[in-house]
Computed example of a mutant assay.
Amino acid sequence: MCRSIKTLRPPFETDATEADMRAAALQYVRKVSGFRQPAAHNAEAFERAVADITEATVRLLGALEVRGAQSA
């Protein structure tokens, strides 16, 4: 698994930014594709996957209800 991806949901990370979510998505796509940096002919698909996974992560973290979490 992607050991460098950190948990972004509260209470582990209370201030996860979209940049944090994009970094996690990038690590995931790198792991799944096997490319650290894709060749030019794969760059569009690679970046689209990173954007899609970032959006899914934003939606996921926005929808999660963490029991026992303190509201600010």
Rank of each mutant, 00 (worst) to 15 (best):
F35I: 01
Y28C: 08
M21R: 07
A19F: 07
F12W: 14
L61F: 10
M21N: 03
P10R: 06
S33Q: 05
L64D: 13
E44I: 15
E44S: 12
A63H: 04
L60K: 08
E55A: 14
L64T: 07
P10K: 09
A39H: 10
A72N: 13
E65L: 14
I53V: 12
M1N: 06
V66R: 09
S4T: 11
N42L: 15
A16R: 04
F46C: 05
R9L: 06
T54V: 08
Q37F: 13
E55H: 10
N42K: 15
E18P: 03
A43P: 00
T57L: 07
L60H: 07
S33R: 05
Q70L: 10
K6V: 03
S33V: 00
S71V: 15
R36M: 03
V29W: 00
T17S: 03
E13Y: 00
P11Q: 05
Q70S: 13
E65M: 10
E65T: 13
D20T: 05
E55P: 05
S4M: 08
A72W: 12
A56Y: 03
A49F: 14
A56W: 02
L64S: 11
A16S: 10
A49Q: 08
Q37C: 09
L64Y: 07
A25V: 01
T14L: 15
A23R: 00
A19V: 03
E65I: 09
E44P: 02
T17H: 01
A23F: 03
S33K: 03
R59Q: 06
A45P: 00
H41R: 15
A49I: 11
A39T: 11
A56L: 11
A40P: 12
V32N: 07
R36K: 15
F35D: 04
R59A: 10
R22V: 04
A51D: 11
Q70N: 11
E65H: 11
Q70E: 13
C2Q: 13
A16D: 04
E47D: 14
G62L: 01
D20Y: 02
P38K: 05
